[in-house]
Simulated scan of single mutants.
Amino acid sequence: MFSVATLWIPFTIIAALSQVARNAMQRSLTGPLGTWGATNIRFLFGFPFSIVFFALVVGVTGDAVPWPPAMFWPWLLLGALSQIVATGLMLVAMNDRSFVVTTAYIKTEAIQTAIFGFIFLGDHLTLLKMVAIVIATIGVVITALRPGGEKGFAELKPTIIGLVAGAGFALSAVGFRGAVIAVPGVSFVTAASYTLVFGLFVQTLVLTIYLLMRAPDVLRKILGLWKPSMLAGFMGAFASQFWFLAFALTAAANVRTLALVEVLFAQGVSYYSFKQPMSPREVSGIVLIVIGVALLVAA
């Protein structure tokens, strides 16, 4: 059985699986909607679901709805705005490079999250956890280095885009964790759901205003594609709900490192669904990811 302190492990795995599905849906909408239109999908259509999640949580826990303290807002804005930029860059990079190679660049996020978490939140990580984070990250990079992919790593533009996107996601994780733990006097479940509502509200507001000013026709296209957008929004809010629950219980670096299991999920789908054999390099990368994640969980 899991104690409350270790619930972040199943929460993270659920979030990672949901994120894989959301990314696939969001990526399919990039063509008709453009980068920022597809980015806004997860926020605009995810926000109503976050309100439903919060209402359900408050109904079950009986927690009072708290007023956000002053220190809540800087953390929330850091998390919300960093995630907007990082998501947009991720979609740009996905259109420029293969999905797996882009993932490798972005997944330096785990190491960057550890650094930012220590600097901004004072999150303490043991030496074993740091070793686990580095091993798992190296495993992701090796897994992505498929034949013909090495050239991509030598190209400066996609490298910078991927690394900056990773930094954005790292700052986002740290910011949202800071906001969740700043919510006073409620259970961790309510604090996570509460932060999600405000986070998606800010993101929806910022990106919708931007699109109204710069590309109002994109908003009309979004409304025209409301059916696939609704599903992508639900999966985005569902994934974020579990990310925030995990952030409430442990350091953001722990969560983002365990989230590397999504690479294993993607490899498994490729192998079993598309019968794509794995090279020795990919196998060695997967072994390193497994070792890193196992060390993290054991630590």
Rank of each mutant, 00 (worst) to 15 (best):
S284G: 01
S284L: 12
M235P: 15
F188R: 10
V164R: 06
V164N: 00
V206Q: 02
L296K: 04
V164A: 00
V297G: 00
A15N: 07
I181H: 04
F43D: 05
S82H: 02
T6Y: 10
M94G: 11
A16T: 13
A15F: 08
V202I: 15
M213I: 15
S98G: 11
T137W: 02
A179W: 03
L156M: 11
M213Y: 13
Q112A: 14
R220L: 15
L200N: 05
V174S: 09
V174W: 03
A167T: 12
A144V: 01
A136S: 14
A266M: 09
A173C: 01
L145W: 11
F234Q: 00
A110Q: 06
V297H: 00
F153W: 07
D63A: 10
S98P: 04
L156I: 11
G148R: 05
I289Q: 06
A182C: 06
L212C: 11
G168A: 03
E282Q: 14
I209G: 00
Y194I: 04
Y105G: 00
V255F: 01
T126N: 07
L205D: 06
D217P: 11
L171Q: 03
Q26W: 03
I142A: 09
L296A: 03
L81D: 08
W67H: 14
T102K: 04
V58N: 06
P277E: 05
G152D: 13
I51W: 13
S82Y: 05
L29A: 07
W226P: 00
Y194W: 13
A259C: 07
M90P: 01
A104G: 10
V60P: 08
L81Y: 07
E155R: 12
L77V: 15
T257L: 08
I119W: 08
G175Q: 04
I209Q: 11
S82C: 09
A165W: 02
I289D: 05
M25S: 09
S172Y: 08
I135C: 03
V186I: 05
D123G: 00
Q83N: 13
M25L: 15
W226Q: 10
Q276T: 09
A248I: 11
L78H: 00
A16S: 13
A232I: 10
A38K: 04
L264K: 07
M230E: 04
I209V: 15
W36C: 04
V202K: 01
R220F: 09
P158C: 06
K157P: 00
G149Y: 14
L171T: 13
L171Y: 05
A144M: 02
F49Q: 02
V186G: 03
M230H: 06
Q267N: 13
A192I: 06
T61L: 11
Q26L: 02
L264T: 09
F2D: 03
T190F: 03
I222L: 15
G292K: 03
S193W: 07
V57H: 04
G122V: 07
R256Q: 14
S270H: 07
Y271I: 13
V85Q: 09
I142V: 13
V283W: 10
V186S: 01
G79L: 01
A110E: 04
A38I: 10
L127A: 14
F47W: 15
L231N: 05
P48I: 09
D217Q: 15
A93N: 15
N40I: 00
Q267H: 10
I181S: 08
L219M: 07
Y194N: 02
Q241E: 12
L288P: 01
W8A: 06
V186C: 02
V134K: 01
